[in-house]
Structure formats: structure tokens, C-alpha cells
Nucleic acid binder design. Structure first.
Length: 417
RNA sequence: GUGGCUGUAGUUCAAUGGUAGAGCCCUGGAUUGUGGAUCCAGUCGUUGCGGGUUCGAGCCCCGUCAGCCACCCCA
């Protein structure tokens, strides 16, 4: 049997109802917040992600699907959306000239990781980016937007974690101090943290090893190393959140895995996803556009994992809408009439279906029930002779004969209730 | 990339090393023009794949593939 590659899933209709809770909520909130959709490519030159995310990051160094095109250039399936949006923004000079622009995207991302709960090799994200303003309002806007999407989707039991990792200037001082702190306790570190100390000291702060937890308690806090401008920005973001009634938890241990963040970082987390506790995350990246060759442009954004949000909504029923009418017939002339009236109903905006095989009314009613039909329209020999249709309301069980000429009006008004 | 657990019908799961079964689903009937509930009947298998041990393997051993979970990392 042919199978799908590991970590990649087929999503059948029974899951679509629940996904639509999320995707519809996102689209609606993006509209209300004046974000415009951008469709970015599913693959880029590998260089886009190396430049965007940093070649030391795990995502770039070992989790990308890369391959060569026929000219020998290296391409990669996108592991995330921000780098592509920035590339597109810079490449299209028109947008780069606008004061602020707000984009959102929805689509699949690819990472060559070992699959587990809440972690797939092909997964779907929606995300938003604001270019052209360094104002803390937009940091707040990104978090408020994501919070509203989560609420509107029906999610509960989640928290917003907030931190600031400062700008490159103040981060240098912090990293120096952090390195000194941990270097003095080298023999207490787990093996992973020993390499973190060399490669990426910031990540020492989110080690999950029990033995490393006590070390964090007295570790220096980045918020006390922020320069005046970064501290003011951070305070302003918190002020907006407080005024907006968005609950958040300050977490000085929150550092993100991508190199491009400056100042604000945040995560929406839940206790119910095992190791994959974040279902949405983002932050500010004021230097990335410039790194891509654009003029200096501050920016802030976030991305959310649709499948992870879906897992959190699992106990909610996945409602599939069902059709308005199912048409039952007895074959021959009644089938021809059924096909005709089915087309007429559809032409008038009603969803309708039928089964061309003659199976007896029992089987057809059963199918109507399974398809979630509101009404069954019966076209048998009797109806054909009388010039009527019998319409049964599956919910109430009541049925009546309706003259053929007024079938549209009858069904339309019946379905309205 | 590392580790643990699990692979039996469409699905969820049974089956001391000795004839592969049940619930659900599906199809049909009870009800010859009417769904859901109930009852009855029926279809459904290279026990993931390849080797080995054994008189005999779904069961034990080795390999392999897949799934799940955890680490790592991340949405």
C-alpha cells in the first residue's frame, strides 16, 4: 500500500469543522484589525531562511527540507513564514515605501523533525506581521489579536507569557553577565547546557532538566539589563496590555529559538500539550528588514500552529454543516425528475444531493440522515402523477405534499426556521 | 539525531506456543413508500513486512518499516 511520509497527515472532512473554528476566527479578526492577506511561496532559496533565522538555529541547521533545482541552486521548503514575508516586503519596493503595512498569511510549513504529539513535519500556521512602526502599540496589537482569535475559537486554559530580550546593544551586557554566572557553575550543568553555554547562552534559561532549575533562580534577569529605550518600550507594552484587559505573565526565562527577535517576545502556552506547550508565539524584530537589504524598518509579528490549537479544542464537537435537502426517488422517470429538481434547488441557493442508484426509500432516508439533511424531498410514482413533491422535515418527522410549482418557496421558508 | 512503548477486520480491541474472535461501522431484513431507537442476519483478515526458533508462531528471537510518546527543538 502506498502511504504518506512520516509526520505528514491527511485531514479528512470530520476534522474540518473544528479547524474552521480556528481559521474562520483568525480571518475574521484579521479583517477587524485591518490586516491584509499575503500569499507567500511554499519554497524559497535556502539563503532566505539562513539569513532570516540564523544559521546557528536548529531550524536552519538540521530541520529544513532542502533540495537543488535543475540549475544547482539550493531551495528549501519554508520552515516558517516570517522570513518569506520579509523577503517579499523588501523585494517589492512598493510596499517598503509605505508607512506601515499589516499582513497576515495562512498555510503549511515544513520541518524535518521527529514527529510527536503536536509536532508534525508538515503543519499549518497562520501568522501576522506589522512593518514600519516601532511603536509599542503594535506589540500590544499583535498579542491582543492573537488573544481574541484564541478566545473566539473557543479556547480556554491558556496563558500569555511576556518578556523583553532587549536590543543587540543591551543584550550584549546581559549575555556577558549570564555567561559569567553559568561559567562559575559549570560543573552543575547538564550536558546540553554545557554546549548551550558555548553556542547560545540565552537558551540556558529554558532548559527543562530538573538539575538545572535551581540555577535559574539566581541567574541574572534580562529586564534589569535593558537600556533606557528598551525599558521604556517594555513598560509601554505592559501598559497597553493592562489597559486592554489582556492578562499576561512576565517570564524572564522566555527566550525564543530564532535569532531575529529584539525587545518584545511572547508565547501563548497551555499545560495540555506536553512538551509542545506553545501554540502561538512571536515578538518584535526591528533589524530583520535591514538584514534583508531593505531600509531600516521596525517590525513585529507572531505565528500560531493550527494543529496545536486544534488539539486544544478536541473536546468540542466538530460540527459538519450538513445539507439542506436530500432527494429520494424510485428510479426511471422519478430519477429524471429528481435530477431536475435537484438542479433547480441548487440554482436557488439550497444545498441538495441525491443517490442515483435505486435503493428503496429506507436506504435513501438513512443516507439523508447520515448526510445531515434538514429535509427529504420525495419524488415517487405517486408524486409524479399528482404533480407534487412530498417534503419531510427530518427533525420534526412531519411531512406534507407540496405542489411542484411552489417547491422553492416552500423549502426556502421551511429552512429559514 | 537519541530513547521507550505499540503494530490483529474499515475502526476500537480480544485471543496459555495448539482451528483468528467481539463491539462499533457498513449492507440487508423485521417495517413491500420513510431516517434516528430496538431486534435479527450478513460481508470483512496475506495478524505491518522479511527472516529465525519450534512438530506447530498473532504470541518467542533478530531485522526492517510504520505509529504513538518522551528527549532535543519548536507553532
Amino acid at each position: 500500500m502506498l502511504t504518506k511520509p512520516p509526520g505528514i497527515e491527511d485531514i479528512f472532512p470530520d476534522r474540518i469543522g473544528r479547524r474552521d473554528l480556528i481559521v474562520d476566527a483568525a480571518r475574521e479578526m484579521f479583517r477587524l484589525y485591518n490586516f491584509r492577506e499575503i500569499v507567500i511561496p511554499v519554497m524559497e532559496f535556502t539563503e532566505v531562511f539562513v539569513r532570516g533565522l540564523g544559521d546557528e538555529t536548529d531550524i536552519v541547521s538540521k530541520e529544513m527540507f532542502t533540495f537543488e533545482d535543475r540549475g544547482g541552486r539550493s531551495l528549501a521548503l519554508r520552515p516558517e513564514g516570517t522570513a518569506s514575508v520579509v523577503r517579499a516586503y523588501v523585494e517589492n519596493g512598493e510596499y517598503n515605501r509605505l508607512a506601515t503595512c499589516k499582513f497576515f498569511y495562512i498555510g503549511p510549513m515544513f520541518r524535518a523533525e521527529r514527529p510527536q504529539k503536536g509536532r508534525l513535519r508538515q503543519f499549518n500556521q497562520f501568522g501576522a506581521e506589522v512593518f514600519g512602526s516601532g511603536d509599542p502599540y503594535h506589540d500590544y496589537e499583535a498579542m491582543a489579536l492573537m488573544d481574541e482569535i484564541a478566545k473566539k475559537s473557543g479556547m480556554e486554559d491558556y496563558r500569555l507569557l511576556l518578556n523583553s530580550i532587549g536590543c543587540p546593544a543591551c543584550r550584549v551586557n546581559f549575555v556577558k553577565e549570564l555567561t559569567r554566572y553559568y561559567a562559575g557553575r559549570k560543573d552543575l550543568l547538564c550536558r546540553d547546557c554545557a554546549t548551550r553555554l558555548e553556542r547560545n547562552p540565552l537558551r540556558l534559561l529554558d532548559c527543562k532538566q530538573d538539575s538545572c532549575q535551581p540555577l535559574k533562580k539566581d541567574a541574572p534577569r534580562i529586564t534589569s539589563f535593558l537600556c533606557a529605550a528598551c525599558a521604556a518600550h517594555h513598560a509601554a507594552v505592559k501598559g497597553y496590555l493592562a489597559d486592554g484587559g489582556i492578562a499576561f505573565t512576565e517570564d524572564h526565562l522566555l527566550v525564543r529559538g530564532l535569532d531575529y527577535y529584539t525587545r518584545t517576545t511572547f508565547e501563548f502556552v497551555t499545560a495540555r500539550l506536553g512538551g509542545q506547550n506553545a501554540f502561538a508565539a512571536g515578538g518584535r524584530y526591528d533589524n530583520l528588514v535591514e538584514q534583508f537589504g531593505g531600509r531600516p524598518t521596525p517590525a513585529v509579528g507572531f505565528a500560531a500552529g493550527i494543529e496545536r490549537m486544534e488539539l486544544l479544542l478536541e473536546e468540542k464537537p466538530s460540527l459538519s454543516p450538513g445539507i439542506d435537502l436530500f432527494i429520494a426517488h424510485t428510479g426511471g422517470d422519478t430519477l429524471a425528475r429528481a435530477v431536475a429538481v435537484c438542479g433547480l434547488l441548487r440554482g436557488n441557493g439550497l444545498s441538495a444531493d441525491l443517490d442515483p442508484a435505486s435503493k428503496g426509500f429506507k436506504a435513501q432516508f438513512k443516507k439523508a440522515d447520515r448526510e445531515g439533511a434538514s429535509l427529504v424531498l420525495v419524488v415517487g410514482e405517486n408524486e409524479l402523477a399528482a404533480g407534487t413533491y412530498t417534503v419531510k422535515d427530518l427533525k420534526s418527522g412531519e411531512q406534507e405534499a407540496v405542489p411542484a410549482g411552489s417547491i422553492i418557496e416552500y423549502c426556502t421558508s421551511k429552512l429559514k426556521r
